[in-house]
Design a protein around this nucleic acid. Sequence first.
DNA 1: GCTATCTCAGCTGTACACAGCTCTGGCTGT
DNA 2: ACAGCCAGAGCTGTGTACAGCTGAGATAGC
Lengths: 214, 214
Amino acid sequence: MTEASARFDRICATLRDRICLLDAPPGTRLSEEALAKEFGTSRTPIRRVLARLEAEGLVAVRSGVGSIVTDLDPTEFAQVYALRLELTQLVAVLDPVKPTQAHVDRVQGFVTRGEALAAAPDARGFATLNRAFHDFGLSLTANTALREVAERLYLRTARIWLQAVAHMDLAQECAIFAEEIRQTHEALRAGDVQAAALIRRAHISMSAARLARI
Amino acid sequence: MTEASARFDRICATLRDRICLLDAPPGTRLSEEALAKEFGTSRTPIRRVLARLEAEGLVAVRSGVGSIVTDLDPTEFAQVYALRLELTQLVAVLDPVKPTQAHVDRVQGFVTRGEALAAAPDARGFATLNRAFHDFGLSLTANTALREVAERLYLRTARIWLQAVAHMDLAQECAIFAEEIRQTHEALRAGDVQAAALIRRAHISMSAARLARI
DNA sequence: GCTATCTCAGCTGTACACAGCTCTGGCTGT
DNA sequence: ACAGCCAGAGCTGTGTACAGCTGAGATAGC
């Protein structure tokens, strides 16, 4: 890992977080020059980062305007969600890994964080924990392709979902999430990856249903 | 569509074809300067194209060396194939479209091309027809996310599969492919998208099995 | 003859200057 | 008063020069 590529990864990750946590909500214009100044480089390396984010569908580069953080219309959002639903289940089908004590310990940590979140509901904390828990869920399959695809689809919808939460019962959502983590903990203690995948699928599905009511 | 983005798309498509049809087999070094000269631009627009292809997993950009066409080890290949298998089936599950006469007519065209291929087996012709038929298969779902993901995974494995065909019975593969197209034609004439998806899944699965024997 | 080291050609990474495109705000003619 | 137009500021697109990195081949030592 050379220094240049490390910086590339760092800037990518920073901008991804910024977009997914709504620090840069859909419609925001990201100026190459401003980013170059912020990260202490010229525009050239920034352009490469933006090209990557464009390939991931997070921004749209428009000539003479800038890189606009993309939005998803309800139809696209529903399509991506439907696909994520199926992919979640595939975690237990394609190269599932046998849960180790390390896995159970990690979920135990999530249980604690989930309870803390339920006790003090917070949209941003929810988003952060959700992403971490999602990544953990993907660690249950050894199928790299599945992990990559699921991760990218998650990042594509995360910000839209976070926007919608503003119009929902945040305390209730946090409580439900904490309960999902607890159920996952039970499943993995029993070594049942398929049960964990089904729990996640069910919760994503119900979450989508609650979201559709808005 | 501005002229610049049209050129971007054209260069992307050209290089993708070149990679997937083994004009640039895995390990090939793509020089930015050479590509710039070929397409009549400076290195700058080429760099953007290569960044895109890198995001798609087709090349790996290495500092001081060049952009190397990536290879897949058998494990990765098997993982991507397993995922494609599942996604193929989802075409009939997520937003399937009702087959129109236009669909049936298009398959009729593929039947003709498939018979011509079976009569005169040819690896490159096989690859071209396979890609076109794959794209047609994706037109049977209205789920854009699924189409994008399936397309990208197809492009990731196409060149590896084409390499393997060199060690297989080409005439037999062409005959099997022609038969798959015929069966798909029957299914779509009956308006049965699910049957079409199952046929494709079965053939991908059997193709993978034949491939694994090498 | 063989190995380890070093040099150098050639490539990508970066910075910067300029061209071309977009949108906005003001201006002019009706 | 209003609609259409026009000019300019600000942005990205492109080309180019130079810095930094990599790998291969030459070379010296054994």
